[in-house]
Design a protein around this nucleic acid. Structure first.
Lengths: 245, 245
DNA sequence: CAACAACTGTCGGCAAGCCGACAAACTCCG
DNA sequence: CGGAGTTTGTCGGCTTGCCGACAGTTGTTG
């Protein structure tokens, strides 16, 4: 989503008593700034950013491992720098996927701020690199840096909006329409989506067979192609058509 | 359409010259504080609260009138003090209900913070009294009062959580289960829900007929009773049973 | 390279739910 | 009181999508 927003605040690295700023630092700062919403709005100050980097540390996760699990007391929030994470809840012995998220998404903050158990589990799908905020360090910093808090707020609210949109996307629509729209939304630069049809079905709350049938229709219409754990967008026009504009 | 919508400024809180603190003030403060999440967590200071009261004013809305409409540039956010508001979006010529909300809910903040058009329309269902925040006044106050911002953040995030829950509630469940759960969640002290079956159907994304059939089942099971624009919970146990625990 | 696990593709039977239609009941208001 | 508008209750026909089953394909691992 935030892809292609290369807004590096020029005056950012001229700050005072900081250690020499490396290229890695610059990338890190720019990335942190981007992650909290649009950069042209209430930009984060260098002080804001460096304060944030001291509220936690980077963690790396292999596919299949958990960032956190449902029920654990939330002491950390995460922001994904690279990779893909699946959020799910277990109800009874059923696993229900809440959503899949990628680069720039903030995770676990809901529970962390309220110091309650995590509402869902977060599992790495691909290799994941994420910044882990420490609650006890973060709160004082947020109180001292209101602009960062405001940014966080905006980021949280836009996530709320996209979830509301997802509600509407689920309601009143056939699986074929949902699949088409999902492909339009989630295809990468090459027009590919790397996901198994089963996982896609879980995301949409449909059965694997029905998703497969929908994909067969889309293939026949020349809108998409499928492979092993792969769906490729061939004709965006046709997909939009199938999604109902 | 907004004919006869009285925008009443309470006049109570026009300060800057430090007015005496009245009983009404205290009630107002307590209510504002409650609305932004749990009070035992990072409590709002009196200074925080009085700062907030100067960032907007009260408005009153008759049933059927709009607090704001989809597409208007968002310059205000609202917090409902009394009454019920329906959030909906129009897609094509279809009206889709996003949600219904009541006392304590914050509205329109997503769009306001980003200074973008409102994403959905907000219409009063019952007589509504709400506090309307003014963007231009609010932002400076938030920057100066980080704790308030943090509270706002927590409020926003818990709304995100309830929306996520709603996604799960919609998926994989029959209309009967959804109706039962909705009744359990939304019944008032007398165990009554005042809503037409048609409106309930729109909320759940189902047809009126199917909802009616589900209610007939629940009636037969002795779990609920129905009347004109009214559903009464008779047996919570049985309802929970029908909802799938 | 062989065996296994995961994934894709397809079929038929069955249930949930939508739609149009219509009668009966209820509210509101002059 | 009476009529208009809204809401409830119910029917049958039809579509979507779920489920179980199974065969074929692709990737992985020892």
């Amino acid at each position: 989503m935030n892809v292609g927003t290369p807004t590096i605040d020029s005056g950012l690295y001229s700050s005072r008593r900081m250690p020499p700023v490396t290229v890695a630092d610059q990338q890190h700062f720019a990335w942190l700034a981007r992650s909290f919403g649009r950069t042209d709005y209430l930009p984060l100050s260098p002080a804001d950013l460096s304060a944030l980097t001291e509220t936690g540390e980077y963690v790396e996760k292999y596919p299949g491992t958990h960032l956190f699990r449902e029920g654990e007391i939330a002491r950390h929030a995460y922001i994904i720098e690279k990779g893909e994470v699946e959020l799910y809840r277990t109800i009874g012995d059923l696993k229900r996927v809440v959503t899949r998220v990628g680069e720039g998404t903030v995770l676990g903050d809901i529970a962390m701020f309220q110091e309650e158990p995590y509402i869902s589990s977060a599992k790495a799908i691909t290799p994941v690199r994420a910044f882990r905020f420490d609650r006890d360090k973060l709160l004082p910093v947020l109180v001292k840096h209101p602009v960062v808090t405001l940014r966080w707020l905006v980021a949280g609210l836009s996530q709320l909006e996209s979830t509301q949109r997802r509600v509407l996307r689920l309601m009143h629509r056939t699986v074929k329409e949902q699949v088409a729209e999902m492909l339009l939304d989630d295809a990468d630069q090459r027009g590919e989506v790397h996901i198994s049809q089963g996982a896609l079905a879980t995301l949409l709350g449909a059965s694997r067979q029905t998703v497969n049938e929908a994909l067969a229709d889309l293939k026949e219409a020349g809108a998409a192609e499928t492979g092993y754990r792969l769906i490729r967008v061939v004709d965006r026009e046709a997909l939009a058509e199938a999604a109902g504009h």
